[in-house]
Design a protein around this nucleic acid. Structure first.
Lengths: 165, 165
DNA sequence: CTGCTATAGTTTGAATTGAAAGCATTTGAA
DNA sequence: TTCAAATGCTTTCAATTCAAACTATAGCAG
């Protein structure tokens, strides 16, 4: 469904691209959500477990940056994972403000059991694109995502209200 | 940040592509959310208003399909817009189950005032890609998004639990 | 040392979101 | 015609999500 908006050619082009990008991402997310739910996991919870599995223990601030989520959100998601015994919080003794989040042995076993089939589903879903197309899509998305570092900000970080800072 | 997952080459490629797609989409959404919030709008609310502006009045079922949201969600979002006087519900006389949602005169004035700058911000954000790249990104995302029609389902629609239906 | 500022987390409040259950209406098959 | 299934919407419930306010700690300037 292309946009019906009557704007400049550049705007219409950007709008159509934006719509397709958003729909592809949401469609994919919806498709992955269902099997995760059968394991009792939400997308956000999986993100935390995956980060801890592949990158090792880290504090909440780092989780915020990796997962592009606000601090308040990470607190709640980690709360829920902790309640299930999949992760554990530990005060950092060097910096007592900081809390290191780590997988528990159960959490490790659990995510190791769950992640491969998740990855396989992603692989299947993306297989409508050939390898070259996947690389090109990745390249374009990376270029877009990167533009954030220049003019955007992560959720939860202060947003300047100045018109021209 | 490429994935650290040790899987087949195809899986690693798909995973990297998926991560970049998701990050690009979320980064863009986060960037657009802030100025919308200044108008008192959430992304979901804007989606409803935009659909009604460009496609005309429609019932909630159609809104679900256009916006890829569950029925329960649309009900709530429309509730909130109705409370603000921006949209209006009307029982469909032909089919009394159905409710047609339409912009009120204020809603029309409001979205007409707000949408152009939203579109302009999208255009600016996407301008890191040249026109050819935007078209290519759109094409690849469309191909991905379309795969849903074959094997996925919209949120809120029944999901078969059969392994091989 | 004292106090100011920055940083890490948490809490609070409101909106979003989806699944599932429920209600009213319509449709279609016997 | 009649009633079971399908459809459109709402409600309920739990989890997510963000912004903003708040607490505690760290680090720095004087």
């Amino acid at each position: 469904m292309p946009t019906r908006y009557k704007g400049s050619q550049a705007e219409v082009r950007a709008l159509n691209c934006y719509i397709k990008l958003t729909r592809a991402s949401e469609t994919l997310a919806a498709k992955l959500r269902v099997p995760l739910a059968r394991e009792g996991l939400t997308t956000g919870q999986l993100g935390v477990l995956e980060a801890l599995l592949h990158l090792g223990p880290m504090n909440e601030r780092e989780l915020c940056r990796k997962l592009l989520r606000s601090g308040g959100n990470i607190t709640v998601v980690v709360d829920n994972l902790e309640r299930r015994g999949l992760v554990q919080r530990a005060r950092n003794l060097k910096d007592r403000r900081s809390v290191t989040v780590a997988l528990t042995p159960e959490g490790l076993r659990f995510i190791r059991g769950v992640f491969p089939s998740h990855a396989a589903r992603i692989s299947v879903a993306l297989s409508v694109l050939n390898p070259e197309e996947q690389r090109e899509l990745g390249r374009l998305c990376r270029k877009l995502g990167r533009s954030k570092a220049e003019q955007g900000s992560a959720p939860g970080e202060p947003v300047s209200t100045l018109k021209n800072p």
